[in-house]
Design a protein around this nucleic acid. Structure first.
Length: 961
RNA sequence: GCCGGGGUGGCGGAAUUGGCAGACGCGCUGGACUCAGGAUCCAGUGGGGCAUAAACCCCGUGUGGGUUCGAAUCCCACCCCCGGCACCA
C-alpha cells in the first residue's frame, strides 16, 4: 500500500526549492536558446483569487515545460502599481497608496509561492518605483522631442466621480470604465501622444502577428480606416468647407450640409437672425453627456444656420445646418448630406423637410408605381395585364412592380388612362412623376421644387408636404426604395451619369481631382491618446511652465520628477501640493510652475516588457543590444480585456522607440494568447446587496430576509463578493489540486465557471496517482537494467504503446497554439487508469514500470510540480525534475502493436479486424487481409463487391450490392 | 446594423483536421464501507428498440439540402447563441 497523500507536508518541502535552485533565473547574456515568456503583469489589488490563478498557473506550466526542453527562459513578473484604486483608497482611509500597494504586492508574492508559481524575481519591477518611472518620464521626453507628445486644448471625457479626465478607451459606451458614471464633457488643455501618426502602420502590421484573430479584428475596428475623398465646398461668401466622404459617387445628391456644432466656421457663417438659436443649440450639445449623445434611439436634432453652400459638382445652393450627429473629432467635422443614400441624412432630411434627390440606382432593378383609386380610367388594369405588367389591386388602387427596362412602356401606357388633374409616380432608378400632360423627373433641386409645386396645385391633400420625399414617404409601398446605401449605377449625376456602381467611387474621385475640387483621402477612427490625469498616484509629466521660456521639458539628468511625499492625499492630486507646483525653470532659473498632471497608467505598462531585460540599470531605460536580442516577446499571455488598449499602446511605443533608433523591431509581442476569465455565481438581494455564495440559503435565498436572490454567473470580483480564495482550497486540497483543476476545467481560452465538485475530481485523481506511485516506487527504485520493447508480451506492449501515445498527446498541447491542457491532463488520467488496471492484474515487468513511472512523473510535473518533485526524489533520482529533459515519444512503440481496424460496409461499421501494425499500415495488404477475414466474409456472401477503400492504419470501407 | 467566434449527452468538453462520435472529468443511478456521510471505493450512464441474457438493430453533433465509399469536420441556404464595435460621414 502507498501512504496517504498529504499535500501540506509535501508542498511545504518544495515551495522555495525551485527559486532557490535558480531554475527560473534567465541567463540574459546567452540568447542562443532564448525564450521570452511573458504574463501580463497584474494590478496588485487586494488579494488574488482563483481567477487570477488561471493566468499564472497556465504560464508556470508552460515555462516549466520550456525549461525542461532546454530553453533559456525569461519569465519575469512585476506590478502595474500606479492607479486609481490605490489613490481612492488613500483618500478614504488615509493609508498612503505606496503602503497599500506594497502590502498587496507582498500578498500576491505569497500567493504565487503557495501556488508553486515561480518567476525570475531578480527582475521584479514596480511601475510606482522612482527607478522605474524615471524612465517612463524619459520616454515622455523622447516622444516630446519627436513631436509625438503635445499639449492641446481638447474636449475631454471627464468622470465626475473619479474627478479625472478619461481616455476615449476608458469611457466605455459613454460611461466611466471604472465606476460606470456617465461621462461629462469638459474643455481642458491636456497632453496627448500622437498615436494617429502610426495608424496606418499599426493597422498594416497586424497581418504579421501570430495573435488570435478576434483580437486583431478588434484592433482593426478600433483603428477604423476608411477610404474616400475630401471635397471642397464653399459657402456663398467663398469660405472653404472641406468635407470627408466615403461616397464621392453620391455627390450630386448632396442636398444640405452639416457641420459639427463646434466647427470653427459656424461662428462666421451663422446669419444674424439665426445666431440666438444656433448659440443655444451649441450650448446644449456641449452639455450633453456622451451617453445621451451616443444613444441610437435618440432622434437627430439640428439647426439651420441661415447660410448656404455651393455644391462644387453641380453648383446647387444647399443649406448649411449644424447637428450633433456630426463629430468634430472625425474627418473634417463637416459632411455633405446625401439623404437618398445615407440613413442618418435621410432621417434628418425627412424630419426637417429637406429635399431628397436619388443619384444611385437601387439594387434589384425593380421600379414601383402606385396608382391611387380614382385617378385612372376603367380600362387601366386590363390594359396593364394585356401588356404583361403584374400588379396588385387593393381597394381600387393599383400597386405595380416591373423591371426598370419596362419603365418607358409603362409610362406611355399609364399616361393614357390617368384622369385629368391626377398623376402617378415611378420610383426606382430615379423618381418620375407622370401627369396626363407631362412627365417630370426629380433629378435636381429645381426639378424637385417644380414637381412639388405642380402636385400641390392639383391636389390639396399634399399641401402639408414640404418635399417630394415627404409626399412619397406617405406611400408605404415606396418606402423601401426612397433610401438605400448600396453601390449602384450613378443617375442624375451630370457628366458621370451612367457610371456603373463598381467603378463609381474611383471615377468620381479622379474626376474631382482633375478639377481640383477634391482629393482621395483616408480617415481613421483612432484618436490621439490622451495621457493626462489629474491625480496623485501616477508618474508626473516632466514638464515645467515658465513665464519667460514657455513650456520647458525637464532635462534628462533631472529625472525622475519625484512624486512629493505628503501626509494626506487630496482630491486635487498634484495640483493641490504647493511645494511641488513651485519650481525653477531649468532654462533660465526663474520661477516656474510644474505640470501637475500624471500620466495614464497605460503609459507605464506600454514599455515594461523592455525594462525586464535590465531592470536595475540606472543609466538607461533598457539595453538596446540585449533588448534587440531578446525581443519581440515569444509568447505573451493575458486577458482579452486588454485586447485593444494596452496592446495597441505598447505597439505604438515600440514603433516610436524603433524610429528613434533604440529598437530594431516594430512589434513587441510576436505571439499572443488570451485566456478566458473564471466565473462564479454572484447573488444579489435588492435589500442586502451582494451576498457571498456561501451564505446563500438553499441555493437561492437571502440569509437576512429570505427573499429569493438574483443569480448571475460572472467574472469573480471582490465587489460582487463572489471570489473563491485559493487559501482555503490549498489548506484543504493543496496547490497541486487547484493547479490541476484550473488547467483541466476547460480550454484556457474560454470563459468558464468554477466548481468545487470539479476540483474534488482533481483531488481524487491526485490521491489515486499518489497512492499508486508510492506503492510501486519502493520496488522499481531497486530495479536496474532496461528492457527491449520488441520483446514484450502483448499486455506490456500495449501499455508501452499507450504510454508513448500519452507523451505525444501531452507534448502536442504544449507545442500547439491552444494550450489545451484539459486534453493533456485527460490523457494522463486515462493512462493512469490503464496503468492501474495493468498493475492489478499481477506481477508487473519492473524494468518497464520503472521507465513508465519516471517519465510519468516528469510528464505531470508542469501541471502539479509539488507532487512530481516529491515522487521524483523518492525515486532516488539524481537532480530535480526541472533538470531532466522532457520525455521523448518513441514512435516505434505504437508499431509494435496490433491494430484494430474497423470495417465499414456501405458506410456502417459492421466488423473489426485485428491486424499486425505493418499489415494495417499498407493499403494493399490491409484490403486483402480484411477481405479474407472471417468476420467480414459473412457480410459479403451473395453480394457483389463494388468498391474497397483501405485507409492505412485507419479503416476499410467496402461498398457492396 | 457591421465585424469576429461558436452551436456535439444533464454539464465542462474530446475526436490525431474527411475515417469507430461522445475520450477525460463533473453530475446522476445502483451497490460497498459506515451510527452517519455532502468522505471514499466499485459498477452503470447519448436516445430508442429487442430482451432472461449475450448479442444485435435503428436514430443521433442547431435546421434543410449538397459533395463523398465515408461528414461533427468540406460546400450552399437558413435559425440560434456569445464577444467586440456602433450617429466614424
Amino acid at each position: 500500500m502507498g501512504e496517504p497523500y498529504n499535500p501540506k507536508v509535501i508542498e511545504a518541502r518544495w515551495k522555495d526549492f525551485w527559486w532557490e535552485k535558480g531554475f527560473f533565473k534567465a541567463d540574459i547574456n546567452d540568447t542562443s536558446r532564448k525564450f521570452y515568456y511573458l504574463n501580463m503583469f497584474p494590478y496588485p489589488s487586494a488579494k488574488p483569487h482563483v481567477g487570477h490563478g488561471r493566468n499564472y498557473i497556465l504560464g508556470d506550466a508552460i515555462t516549466r515545460y520550456l525549461i525542461m526542453r532546454g530553453y533559456n527562459v525569461l519569465n519575469p513578473m512585476g506590478w502595474d502599481a500606479f492607479g486609481l484604486p490605490a489613490e481612492n483608497q488613500a483618500i478614504r482611509s488615509g493609508v498612503h497608496p505606496r503602503d497599500w500597494t506594497m502590502r498587496n504586492i507582498a500578498e500576491f508574492k505569497r500567493q504565487f509561492r503557495d501556488w508553486g508559481v515561480v518567476f525570475d524575481w531578480d527582475r521584479e519591477i514596480a511601475t510606482c518605483e522612482p527607478e522605474y518611472y524615471k524612465w517612463t518620464q524619459w520616454i515622455f521626453l523622447k516622444l516630446y522631442e519627436r513631436g509625438l507628445a503635445y499639449r492641446a486644448e481638447a474636449e475631454v471625457n471627464y468622470c465626475p466621480t473619479c474627478e479625472t479626465v478619461l481616455a476615449n478607451e476608458q469611457a466605455v459606451g459613454g460611461r466611466c470604465e471604472r465606476c460606470n458614471t456617465p461621462v461629462e464633457k469638459k474643455t481642458l488643455t491636456q497632453w496627448f501622444f500622437r498615436i494617429t501618426a502610426y495608424a496606418e502602420e499599426l493597422l498594416r502590421d497586424l497581418d504579421t502577428l501570430d495573435w488570435p484573430e478576434h483580437v486583431k479584428t478588434m484592433q482593426r475596428n478600433w483603428i477604423g480606416r476608411s477610404e474616400g475623398a475630401n471635397v471642397v465646398f464653399r459657402s456663398e461668401l467663398g469660405d472653404e468647407i472641406v468635407v470627408f466622404t466615403t461616397r464621392p459617387d453620391t455627390l450630386w445628391g448632396a442636398t444640405f450640409m452639416v457641420l459639427a456644432p463646434e466647427h470653427p466656421l459656424v461662428e462666421k457663417l451663422t446669419a444674424p437672425e439665426k445666431r440666438a438659436e444656433v448659440e443655444e443649440y451649441r450650448k446644449l450639445a456641449a452639455r450633453r453627456t456622451e451617453v445621451e449623445r451616443l444613444s441610437t434611439e435618440r432622434e437627430k436634432t439640428g439647426v439651420f444656420i441661415g447660410a448656404y453652400a455651393i455644391n462644387p459638382v453641380n453648383g446647387e445652393r444647399i443649406p448649411i445646418w449644424i447637428a450633433d450627429y456630426v463629430l468634430m473629432t472625425y474627418g473634417t467635422g463637416a459632411i455633405m448630406a446625401v439623404p437618398a443614400h445615407d440613413e442618418r441624412d435621410f432621417q434628418f432630411a425627412l424630419k426637417y423637410g429637406i429635399p431628397v434627390i436619388p443619384v444611385i440606382a437601387p439594387p434589384g432593378g425593380v421600379a414601383k408605381s402606385y396608382v391611387m383609386a380614382g385617378t385612372f380610367e376603367q380600362g387601366l388594369p386590363g390594359a396593364l395585364r394585356e401588356a404583361g405588367f403584374t400588379f396588385e389591386e387593393k381597394e381600387g388602387s393599383l400597386y405595380v412592380s416591373f423591371p426598370e427596362a419596362d419603365r418607358g412602356r409603362y409610362v406611355e401606357l399609364v399616361r393614357e388612362y390617368l384622369r385629368p388633374g391626377s398623376w402617378t409616380e415611378v420610383i426606382g432608378a430615379g423618381w418620375q412623376f407622370v401627369f396626363p400632360d407631362a412627365v417630370m423627373d426629380v433629378g435636381s433641386l429645381e426639378e424637385e421644387r417644380a414637381v412639388l409645386e405642380k402636385c400641390k396645385a392639383l391636389e390639396p391633400r399634399v399641401e402639408g408636404a414640404r418635399t417630394v420625399a415627404e409626399m412619397l414617404w406617405r406611400v408605404e409601398f415606396y418606402r423601401d426604395l426612397l433610401f438605400h446605401a448600396e453601390y449602384g449605377e450613378m443617375i442624375n449625376s451630370g457628366p458621370l451619369t451612367g457610371t456603373p456602381g463598381d467603378i463609381a467611387v474611383k471615377r468620381t474621385t479622379e474626376w474631382l481631382e482633375a478639377r481640383g475640387i477634391g482629393k482621395f483621402a483616408v480617415n481613421y477612427r483612432l484618436r490621439d491618446w490622451l495621457i493626462s490625469r489629474q491625480r496623485y498616484w501616477g508618474a508626473p509629466i516632466p514638464i515645467v511652465y515658465c513665464d519667460k521660456c514657455g513650456t520647458v521639458p525637464v532635462p534628462e539628468e533631472d529625472l525622475p520628477v519625484l512624486l512629493p511625499e505628503v501626509k494626506e492625499i487630496g482630491l486635487k492630486g498634484l495640483s493641490g501640493i504647493e511645494e511641488f507646483v513651485h519650481t525653477t525653470c531649468p532654462k533660465c532659473g526663474g520661477p516656474a510652475r510644474r505640470e501637475t498632471d500624471t500620466m495614464d497608467t497605460f503609459v507605464d505598462s506600454s514599455w515594461y516588457y523592455l525594462r525586464y531585460i535590465s531592470p536595475h540599470d540606472d543609466d538607461k531605460p533598457f539595453d538596446s543590444e540585449l533588448v534587440n536580442a531578446w525581443l519581440p516577446v515569444d509568447l505573451y499571455v493575458g486577458g482579452v480585456e486588454h485586447a485593444i488598449l494596452h496592446l495597441l499602446y505598447s505597439r505604438f511605443i515600440t514603433k516610436a522607440l524603433r524610429d528613434m533608433g533604440y529598437l530594431s523591431f516594430g512589434e513587441p509581442f510576436a505571439r499572443l494568447f488570451t485566456q478566458g476569465m473564471i466565473t462564479y455565481p454572484a447573488y444579489w438581494c435588492p435589500e442586502h446587496r451582494w451576498v457571498p455564495p456561501k451564505e446563500v440559503v438553499d441555493g437561492k435565498y437571502c440569509p437576512h430576509c429570505h427573499r429569493e436572490l438574483e443569480v448571475s454567473v460572472v467574472a469573480m470580483s471582490k465587489s460582487k463578493l463572489n471570489v473563491v480564495s485559493p487559501d482555503e482550497l490549498i489548506e484543504k486540497y493543496g496547490a497541486d489540486t487547484e493547479r490541476l483543476y484550473t488547467l483541466f476545467m476547460g480550454p484556457p481560452e474560454k470563459e468558464i465557471e468554477w466548481s468545487e465538485e470539479g476540483l474534488r475530481g482533481a483531488w481524487r485523481f491526485l490521491n489515486r496517482f499518489w497512492e499508486l506511485l508510492t506503492t510501486w516506487i519502493p520496488r522499481v527504485k531497486e530495479v536496474g537494467g532496461d528492457f527491449d520493447p520488441a520483446a514484450l508480451p502483448p499486455a506490456e506492449r500495449e501499455l508501452w504503446a499507450k504510454f508513448n501515445e500519452t507523451i505525444r498527446k501531452v507534448t502536442r498541447e504544449f507545442e500547439s497554439r491552444r494550450f489545451g491542457f484539459n486534453v493533456a491532463i485527460a490523457g494522463i488520467m486515462e493512462f493512469t487508469n490503464s496503468l492501474e488496471e495493468y498493475l492489478n492484474r499481477g506481477e508487473p515487468n519492473l524494468a518497464l514500470l520503472k521507465r513508465i513511472v519516471r517519465n510519468l512523473v516528469l510528464l505531470i510535473s508542469p501541471f502539479t510540480p509539488f507532487i512530481a518533485e516529491e515522487l521524483w526524489s523518492r525515486l532516488g533520482e539524481e537532480g530535480a525534475v526541472l533538470e531532466q529533459g522532457w520525455p521523448a515519444y518513441d514512435e516505434e512503440a505504437v508499431k509494435l502493436l496490433s491494430v484494430e481496424i474497423p470495417v465499414q460496409i456501405n458506410g456502417k461499421v459492421r466488423a473489426r479486424v485485428r491486424l499486425p501494425h505493418d499489415v494495417a499500415g499498407d493499403a494493399d495488404a490491409l484490403r486483402e487481409a480484411v477481405l479474407k477475414a472471417e468476420e467480414v466474409k459473412r457480410y459479403l456472401e451473395g453480394k457483389e463487391l463494388v468498391k474497397a477503400i483501405a485507409v492505412p492504419g485507419r479503416l476499410v470501407s467496402l461498398v457492396v450490392k
